[in-house]
Design a protein around this nucleic acid. Structure first.
Lengths: 193, 193
DNA sequence: CCTACCGATCGGTAGG
DNA sequence: CCTACCGATCGGTAGG
């Protein structure tokens, strides 16, 4: 009975996110999706407008989630070192709170059609710019090494990505602990000093 | 005339790698591919057996390339620190020497059909195991910090991945220099000591 | 290497 | 929410 209260559209969205993650957007058919929610393919269209709409909402939901976090961290924390540490933590929280849909945000967005494709790329760029600015501030203040801020940013972001690409719950440590270890690795390096 | 000597199958394979990278395996049709090599779709089958075959050969070619390198490095270099540094360099060389097909190795392999899917996953696992063993050896010898070797391995591998995901030639530094900076970042960390 | 064509499947609509 | 169905496109084959 409790399940009956979840809007059907949300149920469809979650099933879509899972299929997009497991097979990719293009390899997922509306008939696959219909079967996953125990409907006929045509009945899906009483709740959604198109396959594109599903991808679009999944991608932008995540993009906005990431951006809201970084803006908050810029206000709440003063030093670049704190901001970066919080950013890493926030990135992992967003990614693991909606672990199935993050793959679309990472990989399937390229199947977005215009004008949404352009808009999405701009949102992502904004996130990257803010991320880079924090690293740049750390370098300017002498807290971080004199690294290339773009390279450092992508290295950090990529390191966070493997966690939801390869991580499988209850197979190993918790995401929080993995996140801490990745943070330490990125900030202090692998070599002993 | 020089181009006439390149086997048609190779031309098709390279065009396929580019399309799989740009649109993904599922979203690439044999008619797209045919157009790219100025043929009718049906004519492709005089040179190849199936769409699957193209993906399979692209994926396994890269997998074998990566594995051959790591076996060689294990023999040629003695210390884990040297081996890791060489491994990072080798990974980047493989990735950039065939930059278009590396995306299939990274992302499109999941569209492989059995039994090749299982075989591919095993090859990749073997690469990861050897990579992890080198990090483990460095920890045992006291050269590396007491990190989780699996986490360290994935962090390193992911950091290498962004270079061919995001890097665009002549927009910035060379791959060699980017690789050096990423290496330094991973080994020494972002924070000043 | 082409024309002609196969059955299967695609996203989506009409109409109830 | 269903049945019935649309035109388009899919990977691939036959036959020359």
């Amino acid at each position: 009975m409790a399940e009956a209260d979840i809007p059907k559209k949300q149920v469809i969205m979650e099933a879509a996110a899972r299929l997009f993650r497991d097979r990719g957007y293009s390899a997922t058919s509306m008939r696959d999706l219909a079967k996953a929610v125990h409907l006929q393919a045509s009945s899906l269209y009483n709740h959604i407008n198109s396959k594109q709409e599903l991808l679009r909402e999944i991608c932008f939901q995540n993009a906005n989630h990431f951006l809201a976090g970084i803006e908050n961290i810029e206000k709440e924390y003063a030093t670049p070192a704190e901001q970066l540490e919080q950013l890493i933590q926030h990135h992992l929280i967003v990614a693991t709170s909606d672990a199935t849909s993050i793959t679309s945000f990472n990989d399937e967005w390229r199947h977005l059609e215009e004008p949404y494709l352009t808009e999405f790329v701009q949102l992502r760029k904004r996130y990257e710019n803010r991320f880079r600015a924090i690293i740049q501030a750390g370098i300017d203040q002498g807290i971080f090494r004199d690294a290339d801020p773009t390279i450092a940013m992508y290295t950090v972001l990529s390191s966070l990505r493997w966690i939801y690409d390869w991580y499988r719950p209850n197979r190993s440590k918790s995401v929080a602990i993995i996140g801490q270890e990745v943070s330490k690795l990125l900030l202090s390096g692998l070599k002993k000093t």
